[in-house]
Structure formats: structure tokens, C-alpha cells
């Protein structure tokens, strides 16, 4: 691994976290990045505690499975937040940007890093992105399973068609949200 980048791990981590927090609305981004208490700021602290170990692994062996727990923790949160799937899993693309930021900070950075180092590192990041995507899908499927289980546990049999979906569809009160006749499958 390129030493110059490795030495700047904490600065890269800071830049990466900043870029992640910027994916939230500005009023929230400040809070998420400033409050360190794990219980007062569950989202921010999940990112803070995951960033270090993930970078460590990335600059080392580069095996996403080793830090799967950390990736899971942050993707699990983003999987139920107001993001499109691509935005939810964009965190490792943001890491690429954070590394590029670091390189452009000092002229020396660009001179000291070989193109193949960068390509190698970015390939490793791609593996982490794919792992994030797998976890994202697992979380989304889990949400639907939980939602379904919750729905079938509803005691709707008791009050005539109380929450029966066919009633709601007939009345136009719910639509099939997965497919929009005019626009095709909706992303959001």
C-alpha cells in the first residue's frame, strides 16, 4: 500500500465522514458530525465508530468481510432513511472522493502516488461497494419481511375487512407503489 496515503488515514477519514454527513440536509449534517455521544446521536456515532476500522482494513488486506459488522451497521441505518438506493450505498464512492481530495491538497501527493496504486486501491474500494450493496439488499428484504409479518399479525379478521388491502385498493386509497403505470418502476 502507498505509505503516503496510509499516513494520511485520519485526514482521509475526516474528509470521508464530512462527505457522508453532507448527504444529509444541512441542518442535520452539523449535528450528526458534532455530537459524539453514542446515545444522543446514533447515526453520527455509528459512522464515527465504523470509519476507522473500515479504512484500516481497506489499507490493509482489503477484505470487506472482515469489517462486515461495521458496514452493516451504517448501511442498515441508511437502508431505512430517505435515500434512493444508489445514495444509500454511495458511501464508498464518497470515500474515493475523500481520497482524491487528500491527494489534491498537496502537490506532493500527486507526485508520490503511482497510478497503479490508485487503481489498486479503487478496485479494493469497489469490493467494499459491492459488499455494501449486498448488505443494503439484505436490509431491504428484512424490512419487507418485518412489514409483512407485522401485517399478518394484525387482528383485521375481527372487524369486517378492517384493514383489508383489497378494500383500500378498490376505493383508490392505496396504489401499488412498486409500479407507476406512466413512469415505470419508481425509484423513490
Amino acid at each position: 500500500m502507498n505509505n503516503w496515503l496510509f499516513e494520511r488515514k485520519s485526514s482521509i477519514s475526516e474528509g470521508w465522514l464530512r462527505r457522508i454527513f453532507e448527504t444529509y440536509p444541512p441542518e442535520a449534517a452539523t449535528f450528526l458530525s458534532n455530537q459524539n455521544d453514542r446515545f444522543a446521536n446514533p447515526i453520527g456515532s455509528a459512522f464515527l465508530s465504523a470509519a476507522g476500522p473500515i479504512l484500516e482494513e481497506l489499507f490493509g488486506e482489503g477484505n470487506p468481510e472482515t469489517v462486515e459488522g461495521f458496514i452493516d451497521e451504517i448501511i442498515r441505518i441508511r437502508a431505512v432513511q430517505d435515500f434512493r438506493p444508489s445514495d444509500a450505498v454511495s458511501i464508498f464512492f464518497l470515500l474515493k472522493l475523500a481520497i482524491r481530495d487528500e491527494m489534491t491538497k498537496e502537490k506532493e501527493g500527486q507526485d508520490k502516488i503511482k497510478t497503479e496504486d490508485i487503481l489498486f486501491l479503487e478496485s479494493k474500494i469497489d469490493k467494499f461497494s459491492l459488499a455494501a450493496f449486498d448488505i443494503y439488499m439484505k436490509c431491504r428484504e428484512r424490512v419487507w419481511e418485518i412489514r409483512f409479518n407485522d401485517f399478518i399479525k394484525r387482528p383485521f379478521v375481527l372487524s369486517e375487512a378492517a384493514m383489508c388491502p383489497s378494500y383500500l385498493i378498490k376505493k383508490g386509497m392505496i396504489k401499488d407503489v412498486g409500479f407507476d403505470g406512466e413512469k415505470g418502476c419508481s425509484l423513490s
Binding site: 453532507e22 441542518e27 445514495d87 464512492f93 472522493l97 500527486q110 423513490s188
Partner: peptide
Amino acid sequence: AKDLTQKEMLRIDYNPPKSGWMDTPVKIK
């Protein structure tokens, strides 16, 4: 290759533009 990467790097932003809460219209999901 490096030049190209750097130019692209300056252009790419994964973040959408942001506005204050009052000007951000609600999107019901």
C-alpha cells in the same frame, strides 16, 4: 490518466443541492 482523474474528480459530486427547510417542498413517500 492521472490528469483525467483529477479533472473528473472536480466535476463529480454525489450530493444533491441543498436548501433550507422552508424552501424544501415535501415529498410524500
